[in-house]
Amino acid sequence: MSKLFTISPSPHVHSGDSVNKIMYGVILALVPAFIWSVVMFGLDSVRVTLIAVAACVVFELLIQKFILKVKPQIADGSAALTGVLLAFNVPASVPSWMLIVGALVSIGIAKMPFGGLGNNPFNPALVGRVFMLISFPVQMTSWPVAGSFGVDAVTTATPLAILKEGVKNGQPVIEIFKNLPTNMDLLIGNMAGSLGEISALALIIGGLFMLVRKIITWHIPVSVMLSAAIFSGIFWLIDPAKFADPIFHLITGGLILGAFFMATDMVTSPMNPKAQIIFGAGIGILTILIRLWGAYPEGISFAILIMNAMVPLLNRYVKPKRFGEVNIQSTKG
């Protein structure tokens, strides 16, 4: 026989989906937010993103080639995605070397030691970001004022930081709000903040794109946002003078970015819808807890990392609904 037929176990067809398609799909979904960041912070955001992506990819390549001695798999896009997400979580003014350190932590500590793609328990980009936040608090919380390009950019505070500071000083929330951008501005992204998190609108467009392309399911983003809204809403109803309204909480800070892009990271999120909803709810509640009473004005990164640690437990104890898991009596009649 000149040509050999292939034999393989069934199924013999495939959906055509691939890891690469998923990773690049997510990156594509981040493009609107990136464009907005360029509008707001100019070339700085291009610099930060490129360096972060390049550093992540290079670190992964080096580790795979020289330490693990395996065939490099950087083309799968996961390292690039980590880079983009890391860049989106830092201020546009962050120094390049700091970013490279962050990338090294992301890839070299949070991802590869656990076995690389698919095995890391914590979201690598967030580990890198939190490492930077704790190590370089000044640079990581100096936010360039939007539109002021250049090295000597004026820095300002994020709406959440202003709120936190104000509440600490005993100012009523309504007073503080007078110094803050309007909800419309917050939605579009006309505020200070990390590179990619500012425009809720652009992120939602990206999120919808991922939902339509079935890269993610609705469970995690919806449960994160809903739980955050409900939890903050309860306190707002109790005392509107001390607590900000849920809409404000939803559209400021990294909540939308976190809900759509960080919490839904497949590797570090639970494996079935029920567990995903619990996971999302945990993130939402923890975020608001940190925002209201924590030391940091923003808590989504920590919330996601904490819930990441819960994922193995959730996978173990929350099982999907099995077919036929009913008793015979109830099905009859």
Binding site: L4, I7, P9
Partner: peptide
């Protein structure tokens, strides 16, 4: 060889298949 096996590298799986 009379055919090309394109499954997981496992004798147990190949043997149970064909």
């Amino acid at each position: 060889k009379t055919n090309f096996f394109d499954g997981p590298v496992s004798c147990a799986i190949a043997a149970s298949l064909y």
